[in-house]
Design a protein around this nucleic acid. Structure first.
Lengths: 212, 212
DNA sequence: TCCTTAAGTTAACGCGCGTAAGTTTAGGGA
DNA sequence: TCCCTAAACTTACGCGCGTTAACTTAAGGA
């Protein structure tokens, strides 16, 4: 599959103060490449440039190097995930149990809807590359903070409401809950046909949140 | 880092009937490359050849292409994992609870000891490449069978012994337990510095096995 | 209108990759 | 002893990659 970028219009050059627009287009192009089913290695600098309809060197005006593009993608998608979770939480009403399932299922749905993105977000694109770049471990850890905090809050609400058994370490249990969700989400994002019963997600949530 | 393969001996050519020996050496070379800290993309055909001390084209006598090498690596490591788990189980004695923790911790220890291997085993090297190769989904699913069956058996023993609450779906709970272990193992294999309390592994096991 | 400068382009570099075709080395049966 | 052939080597091709340097276009205020 060549995707044949036969744009008749070569691309409208941005206006004077709007050079920054291209930055967003580059990130979008990288995400589009992922969504087409490629893995991380198919998101090359040149492929992104082709997708965005620009020449490869034009990227260097907006990103220092190729890994920086990937980091921007991860940033964007983690922010999008946090928004999705927050929306699901607000739509769930005030019952803590409902909120918990809403948030957890929204998480799993996001991963299912965008498996390639999920793999990039949590698949360790960095471990190998971050050594050479200016990306620090602290950078990476802070990325998912917003989404995780929401999950921990909702779990706390379940304990307060009495829906879940009290915990000796709420933070630890929240981490464990997320790890379970992540295990399922990641495996689904990887194998195409996941073995096990359909309700395995609910099983994970109920067990890890210590629901009554 | 160049690793400078300055072998004085260019490499002893194998005897007549022993051409198959090189196959094992190639797999070992690929694993060695992983252990040096590279990601999947640094296990190139030529890098493997350099590591094994042979010329790149010599690999084609034993593997159809580069993905086939990776599949062989995954096979080897999954077999090794199954052996490790089995040994841990046998060393744990007859108490079901002890056996469960022994097997689960052996799993986590394996991932911690060989993070790069673990990432390859479960990181979705295939999803992108398997389309072009002769590797089927059924192939991949059957790979981890031996290890998973052991885990499910031990979990069943816990229920029988009364250490764990009875389950309405033992298989489903075993899958959920594995997913939790996998989430932790994978995340540790990816981020270098994993947040959360040190006993998060025990939390996962206790909750997902429904221990009393 | 012209000129400055932001927003791109084209050209070229060196590298490592997978693969093809032909060549050498040495074990072991006749 | 000779020579066949398995096992591995050498050389070479073309490609896509990331990156750099130098050049071109056009927006928009003076």
């Amino acid at each position: 599959m060549v995707t044949a970028v036969t744009n008749s219009e070569p691309r409208r050059r941005n206006r004077r103060g709007e050079g920054g627009k291209l930055r967003e287009e580059i990130i979008a192009a990288a995400v589009a490449l992922l969504d087409e089913g490629g893995d991380a290695s198919s998101v090359t600098l040149r492929a992104v440039a082709r997708k965005a309809g620009i020449a490869a060197p034009s990227i260097y005006a907006h990103f220092a190097d190729q890994p920086s593009i990937m980091l921007a993608v991860v940033r964007r998608e983690l922010d999008a995930l946090a928004v999705v979770l927050r929306e699901a939480d607000e739509a769930a009403g005030s019952d803590a149990r409902e909120r918990l399932f809403a948030v957890c299922n929204a998480y799993l749905d996001f991963a299912r809807a965008h498996p390639q993105r999920y793999r990039i977000m949590f698949g360790g694109v960095w471990t190998a590359t971050a050594e050479d770049t200016s990306i620090t471990d602290a950078d990476l850890l802070s990325l998912g903070d917003s989404a995780f905090t929401l999950l921990a809050d909702v779990l706390g609400a379940c304990v307060e409401q009495g829906t879940a058994y009290p915990s000796d370490d709420l933070y630890g249990d929240a981490v464990a809950l997320w790890l379970g969700l992540h295990g399922l989400a990641h495996q689904r994002a990887v194998v195409r046909t996941m073995p096990g019963p359909a309700d395995v997600g609910d099983r994970l949530i109920r067990a890890l949140a210590h629901l009554k």
